Simulated scan of single mutants.
Amino acid sequence: MSTLEPFLLRALAASLALAIVAAPLGSLVIWNRMAYFGETISQASLIGIALGLALGTDITAPVIFVTLVVAGLLILLSRQKVVPLDAILGLMHHGALALGVIATLSLRGPAVDLMGYLFGDIFAVTTTDLYWIYGGGAVVLGVLAWLWQPMLRLAVHEELASAEGVNRDLVKAAFIVLLSLTIAIAIKIVGALLVIAFLIVPAVAARPLSSTPERMALLAAAIAVLSVILGIALSLNFDVPGGPSIVLFMALIAGISVASAAFARRS
């Protein structure tokens, strides 16, 4: 198969861009211990997919809308003291997934490829998807560059950062909007069930090897890019799904990194 096939070029362009965008954001997710928060938002994206299919439009805008609504709802619910936040996340995580699956499969018309939305179809990326990924990615990276230091300070010590003048609510809201946007534009590539892995697994792999936050973000991007190349190669040569193949290599690299760091500490 020629490496110049248009579908392959689009797949590479989309996944490599997403790898670079997701790396610093995923690092912040790890530092803020928000992996489960992101997972809940990603599961809710299925509701947005169902909405887009029902309206007969591109799914990206409806997914962005739904993920932002769910993120806002989670922020409000996190302020109540009746039930712990992890219980709220568990409730919404499974409830949103169930509602999304039911809504998607209940649509009338052509059969819906639910597996494609759950696990992505990297080789089905269109030119319109690339516009969303590169446009949205540029916005995410621009805002991250602007708010990088305040976000880091909140992750290290929230109360101290707030006392030093960091607008805690504004920075947190911006971070959650960026997380929702990234999840929405990543759905087509790795699907609702794997999107959060694309965000956090490279960061997990990079953490034992990094001495500074910036080094961790850069190394996470490099690991994600390597995983994309290896995952697409595996998919093309063995006819297996592209998104899961990429995440598999990310997980293997992360496992090696964490195991090596643990072994080095015992020595």
Rank of each mutant, 00 (worst) to 15 (best):
L74I: 06
A224P: 07
H157A: 13
T67R: 03
A138D: 05
I189R: 10
E164W: 09
I189D: 10
P24T: 10
L55G: 01
V177C: 12
A222E: 08
I253V: 13
R153S: 07
W132F: 15
I183R: 04
W132N: 03
D113I: 09
A205P: 08
I88C: 00
L68Y: 09
L199M: 10
S27K: 02
I176C: 08
F198C: 01
V29A: 00
L248N: 05
P84Q: 08
V156I: 15
L178M: 04
L179M: 06
A261Y: 12
A224L: 03
A163Q: 12
L18F: 12
S257T: 09
A161N: 05
T128S: 13
A262C: 08
T104R: 01
L9K: 06
L74V: 07
T57K: 00
V228I: 08
A61H: 08
T40I: 01
V101T: 10
A163S: 13
P241A: 05
W132C: 01
A186K: 01
A222V: 13
G48C: 08
Y36E: 09
L160C: 05
G137C: 05
R10N: 07
A220R: 07
F249D: 00
V112P: 00
H93S: 07
A145I: 12
L77T: 06
A173C: 12
I223R: 02
L226W: 11
L141D: 08
V82N: 12
L12Y: 15
T212N: 11
T182N: 06
A264L: 14
S27M: 14
A205R: 05
I200E: 10
E39V: 03
A50C: 01
S78K: 08
L160Y: 11
L105V: 14
I41S: 07
S180A: 15
I232D: 07
M1Q: 02
L105A: 02
G26L: 03
A11T: 06
G116C: 01
I122T: 15
V156P: 03
G38K: 00
G137V: 08
G100I: 09
N237A: 12
A35G: 11
G48T: 14
L219C: 07
I30N: 04
I49Y: 03
F65M: 12
F263H: 15
I102R: 02
A261M: 07
V29F: 00
F123W: 09
S78G: 10
E159Q: 11
F238Q: 08
F198L: 15
P244F: 10
A23V: 05
G38F: 04
L219W: 11
L154K: 04
S210Q: 09
I133R: 06
